[in-house]
Design a protein around this nucleic acid. Structure first.
Lengths: 228, 228, 228, 228
DNA sequence: AATGAATGAGCATTCATTCAT
DNA sequence: CATGAATGAATGCTCATTCAT
């Protein structure tokens, strides 16, 4: 879980005293994060509807009632779980990509492994699975995720490609489609891992997969002049 | 929906009577398929848990009780829905691919648009979404889908690539990863369509996307000697 | 309970067949009335919030789930109970009063005992108690009851008095206040019966009370010329 | 609220220390009354079951936990609220009535406006509403209220009437019924005000109503010789 | 004395499943 | 075969009550 804590209803402690002795303030500060963490596990295993608040509470080590001290509904907990996976590194990556001074090939060779690493290690995969699975029931969540994550990611990649095309580094072609060409195998591998690997399917080595994918794709993506 | 009827518990007609009014007969025979068709719609919209048998029955134009004449549980209906999307054309494609006499490039240039077309038109996307979303609750279904569809598809592609590598048409490299390189953008686009397009996201032209993807990928995939 | 059944969501029987053999149609037709009857008892004993649907269901001899075949919420059941006591005889009394050709004294001497009898025998008292007790939480119910019962009753009495004043039979004075002078002791006695008699208070003989009240009130209400 | 403090569980001050800061002391002493005052408002608006201790605590300006320093249960708070409205002026009125030396007519002409004024201004109406509404759940409270308030009031009036009958001032007739004849319209108007006026019903001018009621009733109540 | 976080029993509501007709 | 009324276990949410601080 990242520290990008969404802002759940925090029971307002009266003075927010200077130095909270750890024994004093019970667990009030930590609770929301603990709950979201537990909820993340349960939701990603069962999906929204099949997840029981009893289970979430138990896994968070609190009573069912305590959930309602920090969240108003089950759906709000779900939204917190999904949001908490949203902003994590997108901003950082965005900075890096748009500010990068060198040629497209260098940029992409730096970014793709980094993103692959991220996808491999983080829980983004399970969150994607949740968003996909519940998009029918929570269009709003799907919309937010699209706007905040997917569109930003694809848009960033597209922008980088357009710029490279303008500089003659990338061949003519629909840049948004190129973005999917680049990133599609990664998403597929992540979803595959979350969906089929637990039932016994042979997993992919995601960084290796993306490394090879990049080597395969670049010759057809770069203009002859841009090729190293 | 195809006629590949899954095998729901068909109520044993007590006497298998000589001549029943043909109109009646026909309806009765069609029932399971109608139910699965309706269930497919509801499940793919809501997911397993949020789908109500009331809705399925209503959409199938039968009473709720009637569902239990053909299926024993909600889960069994769900399995029928998923299975019914399994067999679709994999077999045909398999034949085509493995029997293809020409070079890899020709084969892949023929297959990919065909599969893209299929993915674009069929409801496979929604079924994938269902399988992804419910894989946590129904590992068995995920397993079956993997074994019967995913593994077969990837395996087929892998096999074709291995053969092409042996003939010096495809560069060295992990053939299973190459398979994902080829097909990943398609799966990503399909899932994107099912998940985000309904909430307003700009859709992809899937055949065009795969056409461009192929042109981009082939230069790096084929050996220099195999290039047209 | 009167037959003035409000119209609860009746499970639509498919053909409403001509003669429903009592053994065939289960209890579908009778159920709503039975439920309302049971709910009336529980609500009037406990009030809205403290009434448990379990109790209502048990007393109606059905399962808890069955309640939801006929009503959508607890509140809707409550409203049905209250409404069902609304229209009962108001209409009849209204006809009688407004169409009465004789002098005011005759009319009032006929009406008051009749209404007293009604209040004594019917369950109106308990319903009034419910409306009073829950008016804070269900202003809408209080409003409906006021508009449909209280205002009609007071309005009717007021109208009769105004007419009698115009004919010189009743002394000058606020006719709406006269109405309360006439009917107030009856309402008080009814509420007293519902509230305090169950805890051991000595009840009033309501018809006798109203008889004496009328004899006491009439001399001051009628003009000298109208006195018998 | 009056100072007739009910007796809530006062936390035993451990040392009954010599001199505590007087400001502190005062607050502590006032707490129970403040709580009862707040509870009165909430209970009279919502009824017992729908009243939340959270609301009561908030309105009293204390924490929820603090309620339990003074009362052991919700019901005990409720009882304190009801009791606190009991003693109000009944005693004073009783003295006045029983000690009155003049004729019945004078007594009643003095008492009724005074009681009407009281009913009009005090919160008795809301308490009556509460008692009526919760009598099913709290028979004990209903009993206490009957014994301490209702029976006393009716009994007092009855006693006065009996005495007047003995002196030949009031006609023959059931004196307890006469009491209801006199006071019923007042109670009806009070309950009407609490129940229906908040939903938009036209209120009664209670003192005026009772004035007219008295003028109407007295001719039939007094003997010819007692008439002024 | 006072706080307010935490508890957990309690209840309205839903829905897969059964079965009398 | 078919119906749909009926069931009852399951679950989200509430709120009086407790207790560590």
């Amino acid at each position: 879980m990242s520290e990008t804590s969404s802002s759940p209803k925090r029971p307002k402690s009266r003075v927010e005293s200077a130095e909270t002795s750890p024994k004093w303030r019970r667990r009030a500060e930590a609770r929301p994060a603990e709950i979201v963490e537990a909820a993340y596990e349960v939701f990603s295993e069962k999906g929204f509807a099949a997840a029981k608040l009893d289970d979430i509470a138990a896994r968070a080590g609190v009573s069912k009632g305590a959930l309602y001290l920090y969240f108003e509904t089950k759906q709000e907990i779900f939204e917190a779980v999904v949001k908490q996976a949203v902003a994590p590194n997108i901003g950082a990556i965005e900075q890096m990509a748009l500010g990068f001074p060198g040629p497209f090939e260098q940029l992409i060779r730096m970014m793709v492994p980094r993103v692959a690493e991220l996808a491999d290690k983080s829980n983004m995969g399970r969150v994607i699975k949740m968003v996909v699975g519940e998009s029918g029931n929570f269009p709003e969540i799907a919309r937010v995720w699209h706007d905040d994550v997917i569109a930003v990611g694809i848009g960033l990649l597209t922008k980088v490609i357009v710029r490279a095309q303008e500089r003659g580094e990338v061949r003519a072609g629909d840049p948004r489609q190129y973005a999917i060409s680049i990133i599609g195998p990664l998403l597929t591998a992540v979803i595959f891992r979350e969906t089929f690997v637990p039932t016994g399917a042979k997993p992919f080595d995601i960084p290796a997969l993306m490394q090879q994918h990049l080597e395969t794709l670049l010759p057809g993506l770069l203009t002859t002049s841009a090729r190293t």
